[in-house]
């Protein structure tokens, strides 16, 4: 069992590493090949305030006078040793820019994740155990949540709670209350699919014969839910966690812009407008790393949580 699991974990980790590398290559190709010579364009931009010597140094560093494949090799080599390069706009190390922005985004995303999970569980439980009238209403909530773009949610929350009720001010976006509302903005679209999947698997599990048998042993609704239904219903959502983290990262671009927070999302936005290729490359690749790592964790966790999953079969899948 343990050696089987070890081999399974190793195989999965290997696949994850390959995916990260390929994601880096894909991002590099999209950024540097598609638009032609964006990087030198932005360097030559007189507003960049770079001297001819600076430009020479940067061209040298990124191998810009060489073929794309060589540039890719250079860039990938540095990525593998943990070096992320320098911003074309500010000339600061990318690692520093990302490092400065990270705490804010982490706070936002983790708060949002917690809120989303609470929302989803609440909706799913209610949809299952509330009186039929309320349950029907709760069942339609995910669909509604999914139909509202998160910039609309953000603007409505700001309009209501900042401008009318003065619960927080937009001038202090890092206050606890402001962070909370930003997190809610980010959480709502994420909680909806989670709730849908939870509702569906609760429906599925409670229709299984074992639920009937457990009821015939005198378990009441709450006992049945807690002892029998929670675990099998939650398993499909474990596999969704990586997707949700990806959503949180993508959604943070908009949420941070609306709430005026300085985080990874803002870094991305600035990098896009300023055609700051190294910054963009780094943020996107790091997002892929986060995604793949979370996915890997979920994969490795599943056989431990679900006795049905056979690691030896899963390793070859």
């Amino acid at each position: 069992m343990t050696s089987g699991y070890g081999r399974f974990a190793l195989a999965r980790a290997g696949q994850a590493a390959v995916v990260v590398l390929l994601a880096y290559v894909l991002t590099f190709l999209v950024i540097s090949v598609l638009p032609g010579d964006a990087i030198t364009n932005s360097l030559r931009d007189p507003q960049s305030g770079l001297s001819e010597a600076d430009i020479q140094r940067i061209v040298q560093y990124y191998g810009l006078d060489q073929p794309v494949l060589v540039q890719l090799a250079l860039s990938l080599g540095r990525f593998l040793t943990g070096e992320l390069g320098f911003s074309l706009q500010s000339n600061l190390p990318v690692a520093q820019i990302v490092g400065d922005a990270l705490p804010s985004t982490l706070t936002l995303a983790s708060t949002a994740l917690a809120i989303a999970v609470v929302f989803a569980i609440g909706i799913a439980y209610g949809a299952h155990y509330a009186p039929p009238r309320w349950a029907g209403l709760l069942r339609s909530i995910p669909s509604f949540f999914l139909s509202v773009p998160n910039f609309v949610i953000g603007l409505v929350l700001i309009e209501l709670f900042a401008f009318r009720l003065h619960a927080f001010t937009t001038t202090d976006p890092n206050s606890a209350t402001a962070t909370l509302f930003a997190a809610v903005t980010l959480a709502i679209p994420v909680s909806a699919p989670l709730a849908e999947v939870l509702i569906a698997s609760l429906d599925h599990e409670s229709r299984q014969e074992y639920a009937l048998v457990a009821r015939s042993r005198g378990l009441d609704g709450a006992q049945l839910f807690a002892r029998h239904l929670v675990k099998p219903s939650a398993l499909p959502s474990v596999a969704m966690v990586a997707l949700i983290v990806g959503e949180l990262l993508g959604g943070s671009v908009i949420t941070e812009t609306i709430f005026g927070r300085d985080g990874i999302g803002t870094v991305v936005q600035k990098a896009v407008t300023g055609e700051d290729q190294p910054v963009l490359q780094a943020v996107v690749s790091l997002s892929a790393v986060v995604f793949v790592a979370v996915n890997l964790a979920a994969d490795l966790l599943t056989p431990l949580l679900d006795p049905r999953v056979n690691v030896r079969e899963a390793a070859n899948a």
Binding site: Q15, V18, V19, V20, L22, A23, L26, T27, V30, I31, L34, P35, A38, G246, E247, L249, G250, G251, V253, V268, V272, E275, L280, V283, V284, S287, A288, F291, V292, N295
Partner: peptide, 24 residues
Amino acid sequence: GRFVDVLLAIPGFLLAVVIVSSLG
């Protein structure tokens, strides 16, 4: 399958942002 994994590994909205920033 590997290619799809890679596409999936980059958060959807970020991927869209990167592509649109490259294309204009």
